Amino acid sequence: MTTTPDKARETPQRTLAQSGSDLHSYPSPQTGAASSRATRKSGNASRAPSAGRAEGAAEHVAALVSEVEPGARLGTKEELRSQCGVSVGTFNEALRLLQSRGLVTVKPGPGGGLFSAEQSPMVRLGNSVLALDAQQSDVANAVRIRDALDPLLIEDALWHASPADISGLKDHIAAMEAAVGTADPVAFVHANWRLHAAIAAISPNALLSSLYSNLLDLIEAHTLTVLPASEEPLEHYIAHRHELHRDLVDALERRDRDAALHLIREHNTSLQPEEPAAER
């Protein structure tokens, strides 16, 4: 295998900005509100009972969302709270969860109440989908540029990553592994973003690092939640992505340029237009 000279800098790990994603632009094929915006269970046995009741109320309302078209009226807050059989405070917490997941909107005044949210813009994340609060093209363009910059940052990391930097990257890999263990795709994506921010921070090229971090910030800022995009469970997909990122960090630690660049090409999830047969 081909390796780069070991010019690791003995510098402390940088402060990282939480940002980024593993995305490529892809319009969501889903039209049903619930199938494209299903809620997830945290699986956290230690959560407070009130939090569990709020989650249960949120799931009840999400089931109603699944039966109506985007923009349909679900009822008043009091009607839905009574259906859920929870207190005002608990229902308000459930409402906060539903809004954070992009499932419902609240309209005041006569004829107001809770409504099934209109379809959010979408970008695809492998076998999952991110629901956005902004136009799809904004995030998709940021993702394409980010993917194009990844190999440059990997080259810099091969030359300049210190032992402290590698240790920090492994911490983020451990966070991704923990999210896989709890089947929490949202936590996984956030840990993944932190890993990529850490790799960008290694580069001595301030312009490149800043540009990349700003792109990741834009992607993260407009992401609402992570949703399934196919019949394959999200847990299977994030497990595969964890292995890929773990191998990438291992290659950086070994200064294995061929392996690292191969893995970052596999990591790139931007759709590439298929070449005509005559050009292959």
Rank of each mutant, 00 (worst) to 15 (best):
R144V: 14
A183V: 13
S116Y: 03
T182C: 07
P163F: 07
Q135I: 04
A48Y: 07
P108G: 11
L95S: 05
G109W: 10
G75M: 03
A278K: 13
A34H: 06
L234S: 13
G181N: 11
P49W: 00
G20T: 06
I199W: 00
A140F: 03
T269M: 12
A221E: 07
Y237H: 13
R280V: 14
D250F: 02
L218G: 00
L103H: 01
I238E: 01
H236L: 15
E177I: 11
S25P: 11
E79I: 11
V180M: 08
V123L: 10
L252W: 01
S19K: 02
P108Q: 14
A178V: 06
F115H: 07
H240G: 08
L248V: 09
G89S: 15
T182D: 09
R241H: 05
D138M: 15
P151A: 13
Q119E: 07
A277M: 06
G126C: 05
E59N: 11
P110K: 12
R14K: 12
L114G: 02
L130D: 00
R255G: 04
T2V: 12
A197N: 07
S213F: 00
A251E: 03
G32L: 15
P151Q: 12
E67A: 15
H267F: 14
A164G: 00
L211P: 10
L80R: 01
A62S: 14
A148C: 04
T39G: 14
L208I: 12
M1L: 07
S167P: 01
D156Y: 00
Q13P: 02
A175G: 04
A183M: 09
S42I: 12
A117E: 03
R9G: 02
E118K: 15
M1P: 07
H262A: 12
E274H: 12
A183E: 06
L152A: 14
V249G: 02
Y26Q: 10
R9D: 05
V139E: 01
G126H: 06
K170E: 11
V139F: 01
L74A: 05
M1E: 06
T39L: 15
H160G: 03
A260H: 04
E235S: 15
M176D: 01
V189S: 04
P70T: 14
E266M: 12
